[in-house]
């Protein structure tokens, strides 16, 4: 379990993280989302004792990270895929981490095998691709078989195979009852990986919800195709729905869900040829939520070229 209580970080006049409070629970994959500059990495660094909070606290298993002795047994983290000495081999890099926490050499070989780097164990990290470095980082996070996993942008720069591997690995870790927190600025990528999302913007918590709740909350309307639009419009309006017609002659129904529309139409013997619930994509919802938090915005290309 990770708990943040009123966590705040100020760099001079700039407020990077603003009284952030949330909990990350075990057994699910939690996504930590926000646009670039929202304060995700700073928050994670404070969580892991790398940055000192201006005020507030971050607790992992009820303790501040700096108080945990042999922390690799309790928390595994990857904040930067490039944070390994390029002159060392993968096995030596992990051996240094393992030795510092009293972890045996056999575990180094085991995690290298687990992340698919066994054949590259004795190659220098400097020659690794980004995907291999991400895998090495995750191997380091898994060294102590920890109950809490924290990953900052773990799929950045990965190919499809790597992304799928990370997804399945994180889901498997959460299924074992571990607390898994990963950050990203891409909702599309998170939608396939996480169960819960914490969305921040300008250092503040905007939303703490599940992906399913997010989808439900932003379900918009139902598109109905019928050969008797006038009859169906009258029927649904009678049921309290608001119905409009598209230029194609289809109906857009607000206020009734698809099963209710289907049942009503069947009861009145009105044929229905198509019934499509339409919701905003998670990407749309996320962009809407973080609209005011985007720090840097490009002008639309079309407008810029005018």
């Amino acid at each position: 379990m990770i708990e943040l209580r009123e966590l705040t970080k100020r760099y001079g006049p700039a407020l990077a993280v603003d009284r952030l409070s949330f909990e990350v629970r075990p057994g699910v994959v939690t996504g930590f989302l926000g646009p670039n500059g929202a304060g995700k990495s700073t928050t994670m660094r404070m969580m892991l004792g790398l940055h000192r909070p201006t005020s507030g606290e971050a607790l992992i298993g009820g303790r501040r990270y700096a108080e945990i002795r042999r922390p690799l047994h309790e928390v595994g983290a990857v904040l930067d895929a490039d944070a390994a000495h390029p002159g060392r081999t993968a096995a030596t890099h992990l051996a240094c981490l393992a030795r510092s926490n009293g972890i045996g050499r056999a575990r180094v070989d085991a995690v290298l095998e687990q992340v698919g780097l066994a054949s590259a164990a004795h190659q220098r990290v400097g020659g690794f691709s980004l995907g291999m470095r991400q895998r090495l980082g995750i191997a380091g996070a898994l060294l102590g078989d920890p109950a809490v996993i924290v990953l900052d942008e773990p799929v950045n720069g990965l190919d499809a195979v790597g992304i799928r591997w990370i997804r399945s690995t994180l889901r498997a870790l959460a299924a074992e009852g571990r607390t898994v927190l990963l950050s990203s600025h891409l909702m599309s990528e998170m939608a396939l990986t996480v169960d819960r999302v914490l969305i921040i913007g300008k250092g503040r918590l905007i939303e703490d919800t599940s992906v399913a709740e997010m989808r439900d909350r932003f379900e918009r309307d139902v598109l109905v195709r019928t050969p008797r639009p006038a009859d169906l419009t009258a029927l649904l309006t009678g049921h309290g729905a608001t119905v409009t017609r598209t230029p194609d002659g289809d109906l857009v129904v607000l206020g009734l869900d698809a099963p209710a529309i289907g049942d009503a139409a069947a009861g009145a013997s009105i044929p229905v040829h198509g019934l499509t619930p339409r919701s905003a994509t998670l990407e749309d919802v996320y962009l809407e939520m973080t609209e005011e938090s985007v720090e840097f915005r490009a002008t639309a290309l079309e407008g810029a070229l005018r």
Partner: peptide, 18 residues
């Protein structure tokens, strides 16, 4: 060398008692 290669991060994650 740890600051230069950014491996100070993993080093402090492994031994946070600075």
């Amino acid at each position: 060398s740890e600051y230069t290669t950014r491996s100070i991060g993993p080093a402090l994650l492994a031994v946070p008692q600075r």
